[in-house]
Design a binder for these strands. Structure first.
Lengths: 178, 178
DNA sequence: AGTCCACCTGACCGGTCGGTCAAGGGCGGC
DNA sequence: GCCGCCCTTGACCGACCGGTCAGGTGGACT
């Protein structure tokens, strides 16, 4: 049923009416409200499911790697790989972040990912491998790179994930001067 | 008149009705449609004005600096400083990027900034100061860092611009391992 | 004072959309 | 064959909102 979510991605949340969704599915409106209490709940469900899936992928990607720097790298690669496979969710997440109703849960999701990254960063700083700078800001910086490269390189320019991931990791680890 | 734009930032575009705007201004609806052809035009005007102002600030910030690396640094600092002074526009721009109607002009604005950055990057690469990687992707990566740090550090956490700018520049130039 | 017009008002309209619900239909059990 | 239950339908409702416009209003000019 949540396949009808593609519409949110294609046309955006507000321009997609419940009537559109059920028409695409070829069913009546009643069946939609049988499964979801409201249109908002559908989006909330989508966000919850996608976040859960993304985090699972990140954890799989990182596995039991011990090196904190490499953990960060694997996290980045897993995130990009997931977005490459689930492009439709990027626009949905992007929109939800701008809507007062959904921003809180989005923010919480993000904070959880950020908190993970911060842990790896702190480990790396203790080891002396990572420069001693505010880990929270560094984590957000990485997040920003991943988000923007997802949007531009994966979704708009449709570049191969591996290339994008290589550059993303290189930039995050070594910066421009590398 | 465009001061009524604050409402878009506070509550978002869709939840803010034209009636809300004119009520806040204490005027009738007629006066709104005297100055703007539609609600959409107000947003478009806002986007145009803010982009123009931001670019002016970037150019002032860079001045006639010759070193390409330093030009990038100054551009980053100017952008962060501008957003720190115009927080209300961040949410508006963020939203507009998710709306089919406004995304094209947003995309064009961004591509212009990106193109500037790419020039500096290419100069730096030719000089051998900057690692030889796809300048377009690097420019987007920088863009992502600036956007995310603006959102989190400047707007949500309200940190001092200079601190954020220092870290942003350090991250972009040297990465995590710096 | 009278006239006119630029500017403004806010009731109103058409249309859309999220959400409801009475009616219908198919299917299993008796 | 009949009943009754559950799922489904889609016409309908109320609310809202962007946009219009007939009508006011006040000041400048005659």
């Amino acid at each position: 049923m949540e396949c009808g979510a593609r519409l949110f991605a294609e046309r955006g949340y507000h321009p997609t009416s419940v009537a559109d969704i059920v028409a695409t599915l070829g069913v009546g409106k009643g069946v939609f409200y049988w499964y979801f209490a409201s249109k908002e709940e559908l989006l909330a469900e989508l966000l919850k499911a996608s976040n859960h899936d993304l985090r699972k992928r990140q954890q799989q990607g990182i596995g039991d790697e011990a090196d904190p720097v490499r953990r960060i790298e694997l996290g980045i690669r897993a995130s990009l790989a997931w977005f490459a496979e689930h492009r439709e969710y990027f626009a949905i997440i992007q929109f939800a972040a701008t809507d007062e109703t959904f921003a809180p849960v989005l923010a919480r999701n993000r904070e959880i990912s950020i908190a993970d990254t911060i842990r790896h960063l702190k480990d790396g700083i203790v080891d002396g491998r990572i420069a001693d700078r505010d880990p929270a800001l560094l984590a957000h910086a990485i997040f920003g790179v991943v988000a923007e490269l997802t949007r531009h390189a994966l979704i708009d320019a449709n570049l191969p994930v591996d290339e994008v991931a290589d550059l993303c990791v290189a930039f995050c680890l070594e910066g421009l001067l590398g």
